[in-house]
Amino acid sequence: MTRARVDAEGTVPPVTVDVEVRQLRLSYGRTVALDDLSLSLPGGRVYGLLGRNGAGKTSLLSVLAGFRRASAGEVLVSGEPVFENSRITRQVCLIRESGDVGDGDDRVKETLDIARHLRPSWDAEYARRLVDRFGVPLDRKVKDLSRGQRSALGIVVGLASRTPLLMFDEAHLGLDAPSREAFQEELIAEVGASPRTVVVSTHLIEEQAPLFEEVLILDRGRLVVQEETDTLLARGTTVTGHAAAVETFTAGMTTLGERRLGRTVEVTVFGDLDDADRVRAGQAGLDLTPMALQDLFIHLTDPDVHRTDPDGGPR
């Protein structure tokens, strides 16, 4: 269940871990957080996990990290079950919004010490550089850290753990913009130097999107989309123009939404448009604009959307 990829420069990066989820169900009492969820994450890629609040992102990541036991189904990392399997959990790191930085009475350097003992892959030298870059005070107690410092400490622990499977669940939420940029730079340098499987869940979609090779969208405990970011972006198009012309052009296509301004109509279509479609749109005086990932996300998870032919292509 591992694979190596040859990158553009022809070097063979180290082996990475795959994630496999089969018919996963997770319920808390009567609440079903995840239902019949199946997905696979081939190793060595950076995945963006998107979903509205309550969609099941944190539940999924908690099961992947072995923090929670699945109610039903299978969760495999490197082909092995994760829950109560220390050989696997040592290779997995999940940083949640709270920072996951342990007991409030510990000092920052003690927290880093604990992380070092938990992770065979821990890089102490890198941790020191990161603490410096993010300005986390080593001698302060964790409970006395500001929200931003706490988030930064979580980021430091995640990055320096250097685990083959690394997950951040809104971990950047407390960071200011410069620190989020620093986080992105560090993450890029890390996966650039040695590919690993990274899952980032976020509401800051546009800011984080360029980091993602693949995007997964969860909605009410189910997987709505898993696709390469470029491919997904190419499938969302906004068609704008005179109402009648828009209606003729979009007839038979999968539409996700519609907005009107006087005689001008803007329709969102989901599906691949070919060159002939684009020529046809040009002749009809219609504007075709690619959609931003955030707009696509909003449409794909809109409970009120009137979707025509949600499973099919544009025609």
Binding site: E181, V191, E213
Partner: peptide
Amino acid sequence: TYYRINPAT
């Protein structure tokens, strides 16, 4: 790193 994008991209 310069463009802040995934190295695979």
